[in-house]
Design a protein around this nucleic acid. Structure first.
Lengths: 333, 333
DNA sequence: GTGAAAGCGCTAACAC
DNA sequence: GTGTTAGCGCTTTCAC
């Protein structure tokens, strides 16, 4: 190993023949140093491998510039949001501090770790934490939810499934469909989606038909298997999300059921997967990037302590329908 | 918002009527306090919502207990590794500090942020950083690579594709195949995989046939399209990874090409996707969990400064073949 | 532009 | 068991 201790500001100051205070000024881009000195000090710092200690800086600054983000590993939707959030803090003085939750690591643990790193605000992607847990862990730290509702004082940003579902059902009805099912998923988030489906069906005077599935391709495929074996395939189906929809399609194609001739399928998410050039899956799009940006903006407002008295709390952004059709030939029974 | 400043150890001490030092002792689980006092202080801390400031702790402790991890969003393989790493530090004194890279955020930026948070060791998942960049950013911080080779002083852990490819080719040859293609991908990692394929083919006296594809379903599907249109489908093909393999299968099924009757497909990764109950994709498995554990162990050794003189540097774990066959009927032309 | 000094929240050694 | 103290690396104020 090279050196045992990383260089500090003092080391830089000594090597450059200036005072530590000046080095601090330079690394903060604060006024009080000539352009020439700045360049010199930066060069020296570079040479001796100096990297500013972020922890010490934040500790010293009363106002934290760190935004905590809890996310789930293996959730495409969350990956997208992370990208958006990183983009939003790029070249700014703000940092993202990540903490993941997974089957092996609870969301509570993830949030606790963000608080212990003294993030000035925390964004929870797809939160499922109970209200009292939230209070216990985050008292004093502003918390912002994304994609799921959060209890009373906390802001949250999610999708209003209504418009997308309305358009999807109208689209399908226009194609002559009457028997349009919705493949639902267990869990809290599904209820808002289910309600949107029911409402849209009711608008057309159609009977709702909800089938249990889930969020993965496997769940979709199992539903397709069940429907095929029971001989009760609807003429159209909306998958809980794109992955579920793809599972339905895959299973059907393998069994010689033609898509979309025998079964029209619509997904939700407008994910990368639905955009595959051969898949051409019509999908109900969430405005993921805008949701991410809103959540980030809100976090920044909290960090700057600029919270207005009546900041909006639960914001829902309308979904929309993205119509596609496969560019690849369909398997012919 | 509740209170403006989070409570500190001093606040806890005052509220509990003890000295700050005692509170420190209790939160460090150090000897020097009665069981009764411990309970009391913990209760008080809980009540006033105290959470230990991790940054201050690490700053004070010369020895960092933080392990930095840089990963790519939207990479299933990396999600799996994150799970494994989190599992490995669970209930220990060590923490994971994450930093993602994506199209919008370079790996260099991600690594730089980990260094500025003074992680005692850094694990890079799928590193693609050049040697001089690595030196510049991480001088003094031990760096460990996963899945890709790292230049000279750094340790790395990856998969030896050899055994899996050998078994896969032998398996396919046993089924009567002679025209076995490999769908490769651009990028550094592909070369080790390609070499393994070539070697395995040579062992059976077969001519290698390498087709350009990529890492995504789309890449696989495009290759399938190209092969079908050229009328030059091999009888078997190994996808660069499972996603690529699935893309090949999907496109073929849509076009009425039967799998595996007309085309046998093998993937690489043994990912969740290949285990879909209806997919039944035979796949070359990497021992992801073991790679993750080895990398973590190595990071811990670095943190504890227990690096032996001849610690292994480049470790490659053999891959293996997982044979599956679809449980769902195939589309019949 | 410089140098000194205080303090962010915590730990660890020491004397009581 | 308690209180005191110094210091981790940084920022910021103040006099020079």
């Amino acid at each position: 190993m090279t050196s045992n201790r990383r260089p500090t500001m003092r080391d830089v100051a000594e090597a450059a023949g200036v005072s530590p205070a000046l080095v601090s000024i330079i690394f903060r881009n604060a006024p009080g140093a000539s352009e020439q000195t700045r360049q010199h000090v930066r060069d020296v710092a570079q040479r001796i491998g100096y990297v500013r200690d972020e922890r010490a800086r934040v500790l010293r600054n009363q106002r934290s510039t760190d935004i905590g983000v809890s996310f789930q590993t293996n959730q495409v939707f969350h990956s997208l949001l992370l990208d958006t959030l990183y983009e939003g803090v790029e070249d700014s003085e703000y940092n993202l501090v990540l903490s993941a939750h997974s089957p092996n690591r609870s969301e509570a643990t993830a949030l606790g770790s963000l608080v212990s790193y003294r993030c000035g605000a925390v964004i929870l992607l797809g939160p499922a934490l109970g209200r009292e847990m939230l209070e216990r862990l985050a008292a004093g730290t502003p918390v912002i939810g994304v994609a799921e509702e959060l209890p009373a004082p906390h802001a949250w940003f999610a999708t209003d499934d209504g418009p997308g579902f309305r358009d999807a059902i109208t689209h399908l009805v226009g194609l002559g469909h009457r028997d349009i099912a919705f493949a639902t998923s267990p869990g809290a988030g599904a209820q808002r989606r289910e309600a949107s489906y029911r409402a849209a069906m009711a608008e057309h005077g159609l009977a709702a038909r909800i089938e249990a599935a889930g969020m993965t391709e496997d769940d979709g495929a199992r539903l397709a298997q069940r429907l095929l074996e029971a001989g009760s395939l609807p003429t159209a189906i909306i998958g809980f999300n794109d992955r579920c929809a793809l599972g339905i399609i895959d299973y059907c194609l393998r069994c010689g059921t033609r898509v979309p001739e025998d079964l029209s399928v619509v997904g939700v998410d407008d994910s990368e997967v639905s955009r595959r050039f051969y898949a051409g899956l019509t999908s109900i799009a969430q405005d993921t990037r805008r949701i991410g940006r809103l959540a980030l903006e809100r976090a920044l407002v909290e960090l700057r302590d600029e919270v207005a008295d009546e900041e909006p709390r639960g914001v829902q952004l309308p979904s929309s329908l993205v119509i596609r059709s496969s560019t690849a030939p369909t398997a012919r029974g």
